[in-house]
Design a protein around this nucleic acid. Structure first.
Lengths: 162, 162
DNA sequence: TCAATCTAGTTGAGTGTTCAAGTATTCCGT
DNA sequence: ACGGAATACTTGAACACTCAACTAGATTGA
């Protein structure tokens, strides 16, 4: 397979993208860590749980919902449980399964964190972009997500040839 | 400060964005780890060094160039040095400073990793987007980067009020 | 029905990142 | 010239994530 490089324009675009991604992630992580003492990944777990009427979710659903591995969620929920923000329950319909349940303390922690986090998101992403830009960003993002999932599934055609 | 929430549309866009970011980062990290035995952050360090005619860069420049903290770069270079991919040199003009120098082995490792990585970037980002989409993504990214830097500088106006 | 296989989730070791504190050197004002 | 402040970088502990191996329960099919 001939290695096809990026054009100057593609290169510039790609770098602008990952640069923004890194800066943003670090900034949001730092903001949440400083203001709410939790990493962004934990925040997202609490958000997903809070959106459920019964405030509970299977571990696997939590994993797919937050685009993370089962192992990550398992470790994270263990930590959240130590803090009393989440509790585990056995799943009635499948005895292998576990339900992560958001506790009242967890809900309070989320409520306390949310305003600051949303303000930061607004300040760094929503407000600096026009509506068209934001929608374009979302479109491009969906295309990227689809492509990543496609690559994951069909097993990376372009793997380094051994 | 009144907490201003996100509209439905903003919410959808924001989620699409971070979802893509997470999926992409995990995929690229996994690809590089599997094919070249290095995380994406290390790859970027090697890239920056390789772009210099003398293949060397001050630690601080490496940090700003890769949007990471000095500490991160310091640890990373230490690891890369253990592998023989990078070497440290004292900086002649400032005795506090250090130069990270890409070794020949490091250059080879980068060369071996590059094709697979670029192919993955192309497959997940460049190819699935139209030229307009890619340019729009870059524009939005630059706006986000600027906003993050602005927030970092002027000290987060919207910090959780204690 | 029972073995093989698949799925849900956990665990621990290894690795990378962060945060705060540390050392060494340079810069700056007087 | 010299003391204080800023800068360059490192270090170690605490924490998060990954990968592979593992347990336990569900599913399949012969």
């Amino acid at each position: 397979m001939a290695a096809r490089w990026l054009s100057k324009e593609e290169q510039r675009a790609w770098r602008a993208y990952i640069e923004a991604v890194r800066l943003l992630q670090d900034a949001l992580d730092a903001q949440l860590q400083a203001d709410a003492d939790m990493p962004h990944a934990y925040y997202e777990i609490l958000v997903r749980l809070s959106e459920r009427p019964d405030r509970r979710l299977r571990m696997a659903e939590l994993a797919t919902g937050t685009q993370s591995s089962r192992s990550r969620v398992s470790h994270a929920v263990a930590r959240l449980e130590e803090r009393g923000w989440v509790r585990r329950e056995p799943c009635p319909s499948d005895r292998r399964g576990q339900l992560a349940v958001l506790t009242d303390e967890g809900y309070d922690a989320l409520a306390a964190a949310a305003a600051g986090h949303v303000a930061a998101v607004r300040e760094t992403v929503i407000d600096p972009l026009s509506r068209e830009q934001l929608l374009a960003l979302a479109d491009a993002s969906r295309a990227i997500s689809a492509a990543v999932e496609a690559m994951r599934d069909h097993g990376v055609r372009s793997r380094a040839t051994p």
